[in-house]
C-alpha cells in the first residue's frame, strides 16, 4: 500500500473513567467510526506525560488524541485541570518545533458522550488523511 492511500494511525490516550467509557458506549451503541484509532487506557488524562505523545509520533503515529473527563468532572477531582495546563503548553510547543498542531488533540469526552467520541475520531481521521503521513520516511521504516 502506498503512503498516500494509507489509513492514518491515531494513538488515543483515554481516561479510564470518562473517555474510555465514552468509547465503550460508542461501541455498544453500534456507532460506526474509522478503525484508525489505537486506544491506550490511562487512569486519568493527568497521567499523560507529554513524552508519551512524542513517543507515539516517533513510533509512527500520524495523530495523537488525549481524552479525559470534562473539567470539573475528574474522578480524582482535579487531575484534568493539570492536564489542561500542561497541554496548553505542549500544543504550542509542538507547533513551535514544526509538528503540525492538527496532529494533536485534547478532548473532553464524558462516559455518556459516545457519539462525541465517534465524531472526534471521524474528524481527526479525515483531517489526518488530508495532511498525509507525518513523516513518510518514518512510516516506511515502521510499516508493519
Amino acid at each position: 500500500m502506498s503512503v498516500a492511500e494509507r489509513e492514518p494511525k491515531i494513538v488515543g490516550f483515554l481516561c479510564n473513567w470518562c473517555s474510555y467509557a465514552g468509547a465503550d458506549l460508542a461501541g455498544t451503541s453500534r456507532t460506526s467510526y474509522p478503525t484508525s484509532v489505537r486506544v491506550i487506557r490511562v487512569p486519568c488524562s493527568g497521567r499523560v506525560n507529554p513524552q508519551f505523545v512524542l513517543r507515539a509520533f516517533q513510533l509512527g503515529a500520524d495523530g495523537v488524541l488525549v481524552a479525559g473527563c470534562h473539567p470539573g468532572d475528574c474522578h480524582y477531582s482535579t487531575g484534568n485541570y493539570f492536564t489542561r495546563r500542561r497541554f496548553l503548553l505542549v500544543k504550542r510547543f509542538l507547533d513551535y518545533l514544526g509538528i503540525d498542531q492538527r496532529r494533536f488533540r485534547l478532548r473532553w469526552i464524558s462516559a455518556s458522550e459516545g457519539p462525541k467520541f465517534a465524531e472526534t475520531i471521524r474528524e481527526m481521521t479525515e483531517e489526518l488523511r488530508q495532511l498525509g503521513p507525518r513523516d513518510a520516511a518514518a512510516v516506511e521504516a515502521h510499516a508493519e
Binding site: Q51, R55, L89, V90, F93, L97, D135
Partner: peptide, 25 residues
C-alpha cells in the same frame, strides 16, 4: 527505553522536546 541512542531525526526531536518540556515552568 524512552530515548534511543541512535542519533536519527526522530530520536533527536524526542530528546530536545522532552528535555525542554521537563524544565517548562
Amino acid at each position: 527505553r524512552w530515548l534511543s541512542r541512535v542519533t536519527d531525526g526522530p530520536a533527536q526531536e524526542m530528546f530536545h522536546f522532552v528535555r525542554a518540556l521537563h524544565v517548562a515552568g
